[in-house]
Design a binder for these strands. Structure first.
Lengths: 237, 237
DNA sequence: CTGATTTAATGGTATTGACAACAAACGTTA
DNA sequence: TAACGTTTGTTGTCAATACCATTAAATCAG
């Protein structure tokens, strides 16, 4: 058989939401309407709807209806993964607006944090990360040029490209990372870039990424909408 | 209505795995066998199995069967530690004010989250965690009584006692946990209990803790001062 | 106008039946 | 023996039907 029917239904509903320009919070057609419109059985439709719900696109409420969900980003910290990879694994479409992509002379602090000398150059990459068109995160990365195998990041279009996958395809081995998380209040800049009201919470991730020789290849800060962003960790004792 | 049938089936299969001492990798009875054994329809059974699969307890393979899942294995992950242990390791002095320490009848939601039945009792423990006298965190835990080897938590003084160390000294094995983190804004209650100004950020940790049989022994929420609390994680790719 | 009751709409649960897809074991044949 | 097809047993997909639970809106009584 070709693609299962419920998968096709899933895609149909996704495109329906897009075509109808449904915003988060909007109500979807009822099950009965979808059944007529798509000409499938209720169980098939519900299979599709359940999948969309566990992918975080919609939420159902008994007695009321089905609604488009606020998109939110769930970061999986059991492994070191990227925003792009995490989102795609959940069936979402991550894109970026590149604010800065330059080769710069680092400040003393950055140079010290990266364990590089005064004269060494550093790539500075700042992006607004979006899911399905909604801004979720501001990420700011510094990468020392001399540890990047002569890649020229400034010539790369990061609109839909994963930084980590690019590095790995250039034989740079991302080995481990140290990450700290804290909560803070959004700055005016956060509010402008992430389209937030004043006094909204922000989750701040600071990450140091190491290669196989335990050399720092990236220090990064990610500022995410606190209520649409979850970090998920699996721990063992 | 009482508890849905598929939830009861879920619990039945959980206890089956435990009673039969099934190890990771072991094959479960086939759908037909479960249908006869539990006297339910196939769709109900599959509903339960699907839930168990998304909870990571089992995995299904078309044409082969259903198997108990390999436990998650990861080296160099941050260990599951407690507030008390963390603080003492840093040379600080953790204390607690106990707000609630009762044996209660759980709400439907809590019972469902803990995978327990309607009649089962649950310990509810709420504490203000302090370091050197400064309130840092509000922690709220629910623990199902029947999985605690007859410990009576209500008779324990948690002022300077670690919950996890108490459990372990009672031969309860804390095996793994799933944790999510998000940022939010403090509520008036947060502000009162943690001595915070309005509009201060709060870091919310939600944790599910499992024993060696992958049974839930605790669900907990911790609300911490966002700016005086950092989560540190070491990741591997 | 207020509050309680009824009704309609909607998603939730459960059963049954049929066929498809896949994996492993088995038999046949070259 | 090796290769190939067949059989068997498993989970996956899909449909039709019935009834339950929850919610919100309409209706009614006071």
């Amino acid at each position: 058989m070709s693609e299962p029917l419920y998968c096709q239904v899933e895609r149909n509903i996704r495109t329906y939401i897009e075509d109808m320009d449904l915003e988060p919070g909007d109500v979807l057609p009822t099950e009965q309407e979808f059944i007529k419109k798509l000409n499938v059985s209720r169980s098939t439709l519900r299979h599709a709807l359940n999948n969309l719900q566990s992918n975080g696109l919609i939420s159902k409420q008994q007695g009321r209806g089905t609604f488009v969900t606020e998109p939110y980003y769930e970061e999986n910290l059991t492994r070191l993964t990227s925003f792009t990879e995490d989102s795609r694994n959940k069936g979402q479409t991550p894109t970026s607006i590149v604010i800065t992509n330059q080769l710069i002379v680092p400040s003393d602090q950055i140079a010290k944090d990266l364990h590089i000398g005064q004269g060494d150059r550093v790539f500075c990459l700042e992006r607004i990360r979006m899911i399905d068109g909604i801004p979720i995160q501001i990420s700011l990365s510094y990468l020392p040029a001399k540890r990047l195998n002569n890649i020229d990041l400034t010539s790369v279009d990061f609109t839909s490209m994963s930084l980590y996958q690019l590095l790995e395809s250039s034989n740079i081995i991302i080995s481990s990372a140290l990450e700290t998380i804290e909560a803070t209040i959004s700055t005016p800049r956060d509010q402008a870039l992430l389209d937030l009201p004043p006094n909204s919470p922000i989750l701040v991730n600071r990450r140091k990424v190491f290669n196989e020789h335990n050399e720092l290849i990236e220090i990064a800060q990610a500022r995410s909408r606190g209520t649409h962003h979850q970090v998920k960790i699996k721990l063992r004792r």
